[in-house]
Design a protein around this nucleic acid. Structure first.
Length: 681
DNA sequence: CGAGAGGTGATTTTT
DNA sequence: TCACCTCTCG
């Protein structure tokens, strides 16, 4: 209670969203409008003043990071005993948990594997090869297939429905592939990311008893970033809240930038249809940015059609004018941004982490990196390959997956010849055939004595040896509450460590890989130590959860010191910085040419809107007159979004000076830096 | 099976 | 331009 009194008051709209619990509520939370404060304080309010115990409340987010932040903030509002059992998790984690608890109602066996995007791709490739679609054609097809299958799943269509509704011969082919894919993934006793939403949703749809059980269990549901839900996720929400509709959905249709991944911002409008008693509260006061920045944001976004009209305002004063810098080319652009940033920091006594440079595509970071390194400015690049996409992590994870799930053929295929065991494609093909005929998993087939008849002696004995190795560790690790040393021993014994040493091209590369493995091991250890439920203190449940965790993010967050932030506009959603640069304001880049072609410029505009609203104090936009595209320079046209900004708030500059010729840019940079330092003294 | 040559394609990626 | 993938040859 005492902590409550010290909280800043909510504004009237926030208060309204906070207090309203009688029925379904949609909170239209503009950027920087304090939505997390509303959600977290509402959870505390529900517990302390509405007689809803924490274990009856569930909050769903999209990212682990958001879930972590939310948990942390709620824990500051409630004493530990009142916090007990509160669920704050990502959609996927929630789904996983539901599957685990209702396992007997699912087609899954215990210790099922979760396949990530990469695993699924491999599986599809394999299936297509069997269908003998080879070469260049299949590569193109594979990306289409992945996208299409995911779309079908997210729309809750099973393979039969997909086949029935296929729109073209090619689509039908993909639908058949979908059917094959589903059969295989189930045979592996595995699920993909989409299944973590789809399977629980189907379960609740088909089973009234379970549905009632879960509806009873969750007395109040809160959904963050509601505009990013896809059809399956919305269906899951609907099934969980039932007719009573005890929920708060928080979202902003103007920040919907993931439609290309299946998000359906129109779910916001659907909510009003499905729950006629829906109350809508708009949070329009922004606590982040100056009014000039908000004016710019509003001005851009009014060019989009709107479900709900919304206009951000703040009382933070006008602030600085918005600068637009025209640069000669992409190198010049990076150089100017870096110089500008450096000058600004020194003049204003700010820290590196106060700055962010945002861009449309990851490739744009490259020139920036070069420039920043030259100036010895520390920077942080977010995005790129995720921790679990690293080869060494995927390899070791596959060993572990196979240990806990012998049916996981996908894991088997990944590691059977990693490190090299002289087991080549022809051996594998024969093994696959044998496994299929005898209805066995690849691992079981590899261990089967009859194999010797189907294969050359050498190959058969290699396979036997491998199977025995896995089986031995399966026994040793089962029910072992100190598994990590054994895991280390196993990985060592496979020769994987030596393999990394041989493979690594440089000592640094080797170190990075070894470090990655170390953090994987220590994460496993941490998860085991931290497991609240004793039943979860084993390698099986830890491995299952591991793929869903953002280990790298957490790791990175921990070691984050004072660095300039470089990230894509997508990655910037949810973040804020005092000083923001958005680069590449050109047609075909922002908006991206594919979006122009596909007529989805509106989403690009929202991306622009998200970018603008990241800035607290100052916003700088840059564009290049020429840009490298492939090998040669291409002329570019200023982005249409520049015309949509309020001209009176912009200050244009740049492109005047002809570059000082014959001067080494490095020398120039050094001189510049020396100058600045002298200036500061 | 593995190392090099040549070819090709290049948004965004919460889990 | 460059990185990654594929294909081929030893």
């Amino acid at each position: 209670m005492s902590s409550f009194r010290s909280l800043p008051p909510l504004n009237p709209r926030q208060q309204e969203a906070h207090d309203y619990i009688q029925g379904p509520l949609l909170v239209l939370a503009g950027a920087g409008s304090g939505k997390t404060a509303v959600i977290t304080r509402k959870i505390a309010h529900l517990v302390q003043h509405c007689q809803i115990p924490a274990y009856r409340i569930t909050a769903m987010t999209f990212t682990n990071k958001a879930a972590r932040e939310m948990k942390e903030r709620v824990s500051k509002l409630l004493p530990a005993d009142q916090l007990k059992g509160l669920t704050v998790s990502t959609f996927h984690n929630f789904g996983l948990n539901l599957l685990r608890l209702e396992l007997k109602h699912t087609p899954l066996k215990p210790n099922f594997s979760i396949m990530d995007a990469d695993d699924c791709k491999r599986l599809l490739m394999d299936l297509m090869q069997r269908d003998n679609l080879s070469g260049a054609e299949s590569k193109e097809l594979i990306n289409k297939a992945i996208r299409r299958i995911s779309d079908w799943k997210n729309d809750l269509l099973d393979p039969q429905q997909a086949i029935a509704t296929a729109e073209s011969p090619e689509d039908l082919q993909l639908a058949h592939l979908y059917e094959l894919y589903e059969r295989n993934i189930r045979a592996y006793n595995a699920v993909d990311f989409d299944d973590l939403i789809v399977l629980p949703t189907r379960l609740l749809q088909d089973n009234a008893e379970l549905r009632e059980k879960w509806q009873h269990r969750i007395r109040y549901l809160l959904v963050d970033e509601y505009q990013d839900t896809n059809t399956a996720q919305y269906m899951l929400v609907k099934l969980l809240v039932g007719v009573l509709g005890r929920f708060t959905a928080v979202g902003d249709d103007d920040q919907s930038i993931y439609a290309w991944r299946g998000a359906k911002p129109e779910n916001m409008a659907l909510l009003a249809e499905d729950f006629p008693s829906l109350k809508v509260v708009k949070l329009e006061q922004n606590y982040r940015s100056t009014s000039r920045i908000l004016k710019a944001a509003n001005s851009v976004i009014t060019n989009n059609p709107h479900l709900f009209e919304k206009s951000l305002w703040s009382d933070k004063g006008h602030g600085e004018v918005i600068r637009v810098i025209t640069c000669r080319n992409d190198d010049d652009e990076a150089e100017r941004i870096v110089h500008d940033l450096m000058t600004h920091k020194l003049m204003n006594g700010k820290t590196w982490q106060d700055y962010a440079v945002l861009y449309r595509g990851n490739f744009q970071a490259r020139v920036l990196e070069t420039q920043l390194r030259e100036m010895q400015i520390p920077y942080k690049l977010s995005g790129g390959t995720s921790f679990f996409a690293r080869t060494e992590i995927k390899d070791v994870m596959s060993y572990l997956r196979l240990i806990i799930n012998p049916d996981d053929d996908s894991a088997f295929l990944r590691i059977i010849n990693t490190p090299k065991r002289a087991i080549g494609p022809s051996t594998l093909e024969k093994l696959g055939l044998f496994a299929q005929e005898s209805q066995l998993s690849l691992l079981a087939a590899a261990g089967d004595q009859r194999l010797a008849m189907a294969l050359p002696k050498k190959a058969a004995s290699q396979l036997h040896e491998f199977a025995e190795f896995i089986e031995q560790y399966t026994r040793d690790l089962h029910d072992n509450d100190e598994p990590v040393p054994l895991v280390r021993q196993m990985i060592n014994e496979t020769g994987y460590i030596d393999y990394i040493r041989e493979q690594a091209s440089t000592p640094q590369a080797e170190k990075v890989r070894m470090d990655n493995l170390e953090s994987l091991f220590s994460s496993i250890q941490n998860l085991i130590n931290r497991a609240e439920d004793v039943n979860e203190r084993n390698i099986e449940s830890v491995i299952r959860k591991l793929v869903l965790l953002d280990l790298l993010d957490q790791q990175q967050e921990a070691e984050d010191t004072d660095k300039v932030n470089l990230m894509t506009l997508h990655a910037a959603k949810g973040l804020e910085f005092p000083f923001v640069y958005i680069m590449g304001l050109e047609e075909d880049l922002l908006p991206h040419k594919n979006s122009i072609a596909a007529d989805t410029v509106e989403e690009e505009r929202r991306l622009m809107y998200v970018g603008i609203t990241r800035a607290r104090q100052e916003l700088t936009l840059t564009l290049a007159e020429q840009r490298r595209a492939g090998g040669n320079m291409k002329q570019s046209t200023p982005s249409r979004f520049l015309d949509e900004l309020p001209a009176e708030e912009l200050e244009w500059s740049g492109k005047k000076k002809a570059k000082l010729s014959n001067v080494d840019p490095k020398e120039q940079a050094k001189a510049y830096l020396a100058n600045l330092k002298a200036l500061m003294k």
